[in-house]
């Protein structure tokens, strides 16, 4: 039998925490195939200390640790928004798929943060299509996992999910 390493344990903890804050089961989260990539992204972006502190904080608080907010959004849409960008609707708008009427001007190649730090990024093309958002809204990612001809004519159905309290 192989010994579980501390890295494995950290990843499991990350997924357990993520399940509580996203409202999806650990099984759902592992099923996206993104757990390792998201854990690594969080560690690289804010460092292990900040990730550990975020996971220890009360996740239900409105003014929770902004790193928690970044982790939730990462699972939902595959984009890493820096903690300092929490609440920025303009930044959210230009990362959303679709037309651009509301999107503020951004120079070619993406927009750097005003403080010169990195702009938001999509972790990988798969991270976009594996976003939890699409399942939450009873739809599919725009441009992927198409539901089939005429599927749009029927009433929407939302996945029946177990209502758990945030731990």
């Amino acid at each position: 039998m192989t010994q579980e390493t501390s890295a494995d344990t950290e990843l499991r903890d990350f997924v357990r925490f993520s399940a509580a804050v996203t409202g999806f089961s650990e099984f759902d989260l592992w099923g996206t195939g993104q757990a390792e990539a998201y854990h690594r992204t969080a560690l690289e972006q804010v460092g292990p200390e900040a990730v550990r502190a975020a996971m220890a904080a009360d996740p239900s608080a409105v003014h929770a640790d902004p790193v928690v907010k970044s982790i939730i959004k990462l699972w939902y849409v595959g984009v890493w928004y820096r903690p300092e960008q929490a609440g920025r609707l303009d930044v959210a708008a230009w990362t959303a798929p679709g037309r651009s009427g509301a999107k503020p001007a951004v120079p070619e190649g993406g927009r750097d943060g005003e403080d010169g730090s990195s702009p938001p990024f999509v972790v990988s093309p798969d991270a976009y299509t594996e976003g939890l958002l699409w399942r939450a809204i009873g739809a599919h990612p725009s441009g992927a996992k198409a539901p089939g001809y005429g599927s749009w004519a029927t009433p929407p159905a939302f996945e029946d999910h177990h209502e758990e309290e945030v731990r």
């Binding site: 959004k73 849409v77 928004y81 929490a86 609440g87 679709g98 037309r99 009427g101 509301a102 958002l133």
Partner: peptide
């Protein structure tokens, strides 16, 4: 989406 940047703005 075209007007507001939804659904990502809703998430934020």
């Amino acid at each position: 989406g075209w007007a507001t940047g939804s659904p990502y703005t809703d998430l934020v």
